Structure formats: C-alpha cells, structure tokens
Amino acid sequence: METPPRVRRGDVRAALLLLLGEEARNGYRMIQDIETRSRCVWRPSPGSVYPALQQLEDEGLVVGEDGGGSRCYRLTERGREEAARLRDAPAPWDEVAGTVPEDRHELRLLWGQLGEAFVHLTRTANDHQVAEAKKLLRRTRQSVFRILAED
C-alpha cells in the first residue's frame, strides 16, 4: 500500500520563505509553485498557507501588499536573512516528493495527462466520440479493479 507523502511541521513555512526569496508572490501562486516543484505530490491547502503567511507577517519576515485583486507578499530584510539560512538545507518540496516512490511519480504524471485529454474531449468531442470514450473509461475502470484484485 502506498504511504501518503510526508509533510513535516514547518515545511509550509520554509517553502514560503524560499519561494519569496526568489520573488514576491501571492498565496495562490505559492500553492501552485509548491505543487509543481514537488512533482504534484504536495499541494498545501489555503488553510495551511494563509495562516503561515499571517504568522510570517506577524514575525516581521514578510510584508503583504494589496493590489490587483490579490495580496502579494515579499520578504523583509529579516525575512531575506531567514530564507538565506534555509537555502543550505534540502528544499521542503524535494523532501516531500522524495517520500513517494519514483514509479508513483510516473503514475501521477500519466493520470494528469489523461485528465488533460479528458478536458479536451469534453470540450470538443462529437456524440460518437463521447460514446466511445464512455466505453473506454468503463473498461479501464474494470481493468484497474482487476489489477487490484490480483493480490
């Protein structure tokens, strides 16, 4: 059985500081960047990111500025010093991605590619193509359960 990715206490904080050490960002973009850098293994929730950003603001490590409909964050001088200290350790997104076996990364990538094809299909397929896709998806689902039943 696959173990879930391991995110340690403090990983969100470290990831935010490291990302802001590169450039100012809004919270949504930081969530996306963490997901991308972790090879889609870790997507922190807004419920963990925004409180962490507020805590960093309270500590004087970041400054949030409203503009363009979203709040953009940047490091203060103290925040840059803290981010510089973190650069010597492995990035938290690399550590989290490393908790998932390599073959699972490929499986996640394939699933993502299938999702892209599905979105394209729902937007552009004619009735015959939709009917064929439904048949394929039913067979695929049955096949996956057959694989799982082999043990």
Results as ranks from 00 to 15, higher is better:
13 R>I: 00
48 S>G: 11
2 E>G: 00
44 P>F: 03
19 L>S: 07
114 L>G: 05
56 L>K: 11
147 I>E: 01
104 R>M: 13
76 T>E: 04
72 C>M: 09
25 R>P: 05
34 I>W: 14
67 G>M: 13
45 S>Q: 04
41 V>A: 15
10 G>T: 10
37 R>G: 15
60 G>P: 09
9 R>G: 00
89 A>E: 09
115 G>Q: 09
81 E>V: 03
44 P>E: 05
120 H>Y: 12
22 E>S: 10
25 R>C: 08
19 L>Q: 15
122 T>I: 13
82 E>K: 05
58 D>E: 13
119 V>N: 14
112 G>A: 01
136 L>F: 08
137 L>V: 13
3 T>W: 11
25 R>A: 09
76 T>A: 02
143 S>P: 02
40 C>E: 15
138 R>H: 01
36 T>L: 15
24 A>F: 11
83 A>Q: 09
141 R>L: 05
139 R>A: 01
71 R>F: 06
99 T>C: 14
98 G>P: 08
144 V>E: 04
104 R>P: 01
54 Q>D: 13
66 D>A: 12
36 T>C: 09
103 D>G: 10
67 G>Y: 00
38 S>N: 07
44 P>V: 06
112 G>Q: 10
118 F>D: 12
2 E>I: 06
147 I>A: 11
69 G>E: 02
103 D>R: 11
17 L>S: 02
47 G>I: 03
32 Q>P: 07
149 A>C: 01
149 A>H: 05
61 L>Q: 07
46 P>Q: 14
119 V>G: 02
49 V>T: 11
80 R>N: 08
109 L>C: 13
114 L>S: 10
49 V>P: 15
76 T>N: 03
59 E>A: 11
31 I>S: 04
77 E>M: 06
122 T>W: 13
113 Q>E: 07
129 Q>P: 02
150 E>P: 03
19 L>F: 04
137 L>G: 04
138 R>N: 09
39 R>I: 02
79 G>K: 11
43 R>F: 03
48 S>D: 08
100 V>T: 15
118 F>T: 12
1 M>T: 01
28 Y>K: 13
92 P>K: 14
41 V>T: 14
62 V>M: 10
118 F>Y: 06
103 D>S: 14
117 A>K: 05
119 V>S: 13
146 R>M: 02
36 T>V: 15
14 A>N: 07
33 D>V: 03
115 G>I: 03
106 E>C: 11
90 P>Q: 08
2 E>L: 12
2 E>N: 07
131 A>Q: 12
123 R>D: 00
